[in-house]
Design a protein around this nucleic acid. Structure first.
Lengths: 241, 241
DNA sequence: CGCTTCATTATGTATAGACAAAAGAGGACG
DNA sequence: CGTCCTCTTTTGTCTATACATAATGAAGCG
């Protein structure tokens, strides 16, 4: 069915993937050496090597010099979680996006904020806003931005392009951390999110760094009734979430 | 400080990573062609190609024939979420693990369960259990296992090795899906988890497939006060969560 | 029996060269 | 002015070869 046939190294990779998935090769089993495989598939060792290297970076097999290649022991469940840009997330679902800035302050961090940032920061921009989808509250965002890293942020009006979207397009990040938790909405928060008092929230804390320096720390509160995180992972192909 | 210097292709890869992280190369900027790079770094084209291919699979750059290579547009926040084996998770934190099986049934699925599984299954093993850490309830698990894929499960006593741990070591999976949400604990659940009535739960639904066939569907309820999901992602190096 | 030493084997890295395929650039032509 | 065609650049794949490096297993020795 393929108009253009797969390149050899992908064919080999897929073949071995299939043998593992089907149970023909079980965890711990040895995989033939590159020299054997190069004869079996009728290609050069480099091509086999490329296929096996891909399987290593997938985590499907392990390789050691002289000892050869083995099917890796089953991994821990590991899935890729892709948290979309909020504006894009709402827009692509066909709903109208809007956000409302509740507070905006430029100042030095207090003790609590320093703890959130995890490293000393001299000046920050603190934002508090609500995101709406089709007029309905979608999430409340509480963001700290390190002005030492993104001084431009001080001059941007975030009512059109929310800070998350702006940062994503402005600053490449090198590290990210997420903490996902659940909580009961405080009365004021429940009101803002148009959810029942005492209802559950999904809370996401995200921090991103660039070359070791913190760029931003953000806390998002979603009403549990209207939001969940879905993530899909298949080692063989690509990711989606 | 490196006893053994990095291989050339990793050096090149890291150099370009640094240029992107430092802002010297901005999203959309062109990266010199392989022929130019091979002269700059004084190596063969294959070596440059290997470095650039790695950057592609990291998502840092894009490449098109004839058009050349560009720094990719900033990605959506994407992080690897690794959900540990519960028993190992508790044990490695130095607490005593124990689990209690509340219900165990071998039968055909009902309509509700079929919907959860997402595909027809003739016979399943349904388990309901509580995990304890140092005697304190840690999570309530609700699991369906497809006996067509794992017939052995019918003969295993899961009181020692909980089903999640057993499956992880027994069956390699090829696809996984997680749904993370928050909810208010129902009274019976709150009692089981020794948490206040009306308190929030973190809920994880996980489904795993092997070669397109569903292996297991599990729902985990954690008391929000005592559990959160932490995940860390740095594109350059490895993952951890 | 335990230790060292050495040869063997498989992987890891690197090279030079070759051809294929995609796609932009520019020219010919209607 | 637009369309089709060819030329050229750049990446994608593949080969054959070479040497480096890690780890194993066997031989030799105290």
């Amino acid at each position: 069915m393929d108009a253009t046939p797969l390149p050899r190294y992908l064919e080999i990779r897929r073949d071995i993937q299939n043998r593992i998935a089907s149970g023909e090769l079980r965890p711990g089993d040895a995989i033939p050496s590159e020299n054997e495989l190069k004869e079996r598939y009728g290609c050069s060792r480099m091509t086999v090597s490329k296929a096996l290297s891909a399987l290593v970076s997938e985590g499907l097999i392990q390789r050691r010099r002289r000892a050869g290649s083995q099917v890796a022991l089953p991994r821990n469940a590991q899935t890729v979680l892709k948290i979309h840009d909020l504006k894009a997330e709402i827009a692509t679902s066909g709903r109208a996006y809007r956000c409302e800035i509740l507070a905006r302050e430029r100042r030095a961090p207090d003790a609590n904020e320093l703890a959130r940032l995890g490293q000393p920061v001299t000046e920050l921009l603190a934002l508090r806003l609500v995101h709406f989808a089709d007029g309905q509250p979608y999430a409340v965002e509480n963001r700290l931005m390190n002005l030492a890293v993104v001084p431009d942020a001080a001059n941007v009006d975030f009512s059109e392009t929310p800070p998350g979207t702006w940062l994503l397009n402005e600053v490449p990040w090198s590290d990210a951390e997420h903490i996902i938790r659940a909580d009961i909405a405080a009365p004021a928060l429940a009101r803002r999110l148009a959810m029942p008092k005492g209802g559950a929230c999904l809370v996401i804390d995200r921090r991103t760094w660039q070359a070791g320096v913190i760029v931003t720390a953000v806390t998002l509160h979603y009403p549990a009734a209207r939001h969940q995180i879905v993530s899909h992972f298949s080692p063989g192909a690509g990711f989606s979430a």
